[in-house]
Design a protein around this nucleic acid. Structure first.
Length: 267
DNA sequence: TTTTAGACCTGTTTGC
DNA sequence: TGCAAACAGGTCTAAA
């Protein structure tokens, strides 16, 4: 599932492949992918060029010559650059035909992803972006502690709350809890300032490592057909046994999400 | 105010 | 073997 490292990998791929190309045609095959009027989306973007690709949390922001649009990959969304004549995939919901005879296509098996036209000058005022908290690199441990130390919610849920800290998803939240030896069920209010600092540091380390490996490929995620390599470095997510003590890992729902942890090593 | 549950989706896995 | 149900999970919205 695309989390911050996967989205950053996609962003870098897009900068290399579509900037500064012009869009000559836009086709929307599944209208619900577009938040707003799909026909208007296609019409407005036709004739514009890609200026740059930004990212905030797990959102991609496509900056065009006149407009901008945001894109969230949700569970299984991915972008690929193919030849314009390449056959359409059954999960291809949106295509940008480019001036050089290529086509940037958006594929999403589960149709969860969304794109939305936004104001180019003020896109950060878009409600979904406004709600996002800072990324782990942009906050102090004091800020993080302040945000979590009064909450009854389990730390795993707080790490997934994008308004507290942006970028972590289910996979990396599991890894962070393991890395600091903490039960994912521990309420935020039970955590010391020192532990909060450890969690923040582990979040930065894990996300940085994952970006270096171009993300984690689980099921169908890929950026331009390339697979990430971080899945080979996951310590608990999707694993059977604890890499530290060798005991069988526990898998249960925490905050409604599948959670892997070691009852022996994570207290 | 904070937390929880349901909706959105469909391919894969599990159970009968 | 074949079918049905459960499961996967990020974000938004509504309800508790």
């Amino acid at each position: 599932m695309p989390e911050l490292p996967e989205v950053e990998t996609v962003r870098r791929m897009l900068i290399d492949t579509v900037v500064p190309k012009e869009i000559v045609k836009v086709e929307v095959y599944y209208e619900k992918i577009v938040d707003g009027d799909a026909a208007d989306f296609a019409k407005r973007l036709t004739g514009q060029s890609f200026e740059s690709i930004d990212r905030k949390g797990k959102f991609l922001i496509f900056i065009l010559s006149q407009d901008a649009f945001i894109s969230h990959l949700r569970m299984e969304g991915k972008y690929e650059l193919v030849d314009a004549a390449f056959p359409r995939d059954k999960h291809e919901h949106l295509s940008f035909f480019l001036e050089d005879g290529t086509r940037l296509r958006y594929l999403d098996v589960r149709k969860f992803g969304r794109v939305k036209l936004v104001d180019k000058q003020d896109y950060l005022k878009e409600p979904s972006l406004m709600k996002l908290g800072p990324e782990p690199w942009d906050i102090t441990s004091d800020y993080f502690y302040q945000r979590i130390h009064r909450s009854e919610k389990p730390i795993k849920s707080l790490l997934l709350d994008q308004s507290v800290i942006a970028g972590l998803g289910n996979i990396y939240a599991n890894e962070v809890c393991f890395r600091v030896g903490l039960s994912p069920k521990t309420p935020g209010k039970k955590l010391s300032k020192k532990k909060a600092e450890e969690i923040l540091e582990a979040s930065k380390t894990i996300l940085t490592e994952a970006i270096r490996y171009k993300g984690t490929t689980i099921h169908t995620f890929s950026s331009n057909g390339e697979s990430g390599g971080y899945q080979d470095h996951l310590l608990v997510h999707g694993q059977k046994n604890c890499p530290t003590c060798g005991r069988e890992l526990t898998k249960e729902a925490v905050g409604g999400r599948g959670t892997y942890y070691c009852k022996n090593c994570q207290k």
